[in-house]
Nucleic acid binder design. Structure first.
Lengths: 153, 153
DNA sequence: TCATATTGACATTATGCATGTCATTTTGAC
DNA sequence: GTCAAAATGACATGCATAATGTCAATATGA
């Protein structure tokens, strides 16, 4: 009985750490971007292209779960900066395929590897099992919260 | 060696669940507010007053870690709605103490108890130890990330 | 007492999107 | 092949959630 409330309260605390966690994560990413001429949004574009390969703006938007119109803006910025370029799309003349330039490719790889190094450093303080457990709990909580809400979209 | 990368990758995945987690949590809170004439910001004001007792706008701002000027707006809205009221502040004539009205007090208690019930339901799927472990990991990660960033003031 | 800090109020700006519209393709069903 | 429907880029507008700047009134502390 008392145990039930303990669990609920700890879960509550866990859930509301999500904001500080996100802010800390984003701050850290932003920090790693200084001196690169990249913005956080441009980095996001490069990351997806690096992870999933070249693709069009609408595909990127679906992947990022952001409105197409906004992703268009992000991509246009990134194009201007020269980290990505357009390739003709055989499947759609108005919608070119976006692809990393050599410069963009090298940059995002460098950034991601530095970020991964931070992950490794931080994971030294934690056991493999604890990390796995935490991830499992978080996934379960996200699922539970979404189910109990007016289902997005 | 391979283990190191596994840990880092799981940690990475965990960290970037923070955004969906936050969105799910906020969506759920918003959902619970329908029919109450409360906005999310007003709910935040009520919650702090309920948790930490009556206080001034600047105190609230510090607690919420939001700029004083914005919290002022949130509080003025909440005042208009009648869920909180001003009390003379013996320590500062220009800065009244904000306190919950009976109506506001009843409302926030109802909301918080319904939210806690959701926590209890969700915690049924998880063990006490797993929740505790997850919380520990998250706190550690937030700490680690903040340390590795241009330290937020 | 008097320089400095605090506070409420108001104005402006920024960020990160969502939403709406339009003209131009592109696609798919017939 | 035709034609309605869908996809796409471009552009405009709106909106929530703040940060930032300023001012005048008031408080505070040395």
């Amino acid at each position: 009985m008392h145990n039930v409330n303990m669990k609920a309260e700890q879960l509550h605390q866990l859930i509301w750490m999500s904001r500080p966690l996100m802010q800390a994560a984003e701050g850290c990413v932003e920090n790693g971007l200084t001196g690169t001429n990249l913005t956080v949004r441009m980095r996001a574009v490069l990351e997806i292209l690096h992870k999933y390969g070249e693709q069009t703006v609408p595909e990127l938007a679906a992947r990022l779960d952001i409105q197409r119109q906004y992703v268009q803006i992000m991509c246009n910025e990134t194009l201007t900066s020269g980290f990505i370029e357009q390739r003709p799309n055989p499947r759609h003349k108005r919608s070119p395929i976006l692809t990393l330039t050599n410069q963009g490719s090298a940059l995002i790889e460098d950034i991601l590897s530095k970020e991964m190094q931070i992950m490794q450093e931080m994971s030294e303080d934690l056991s493999t099992e604890d990390i796995a457990t935490a991830l499992k709990v978080i996934l379960s909580v996200v699922d539970g919260l979404q189910k109990r809400t007016g289902e997005r979209k």
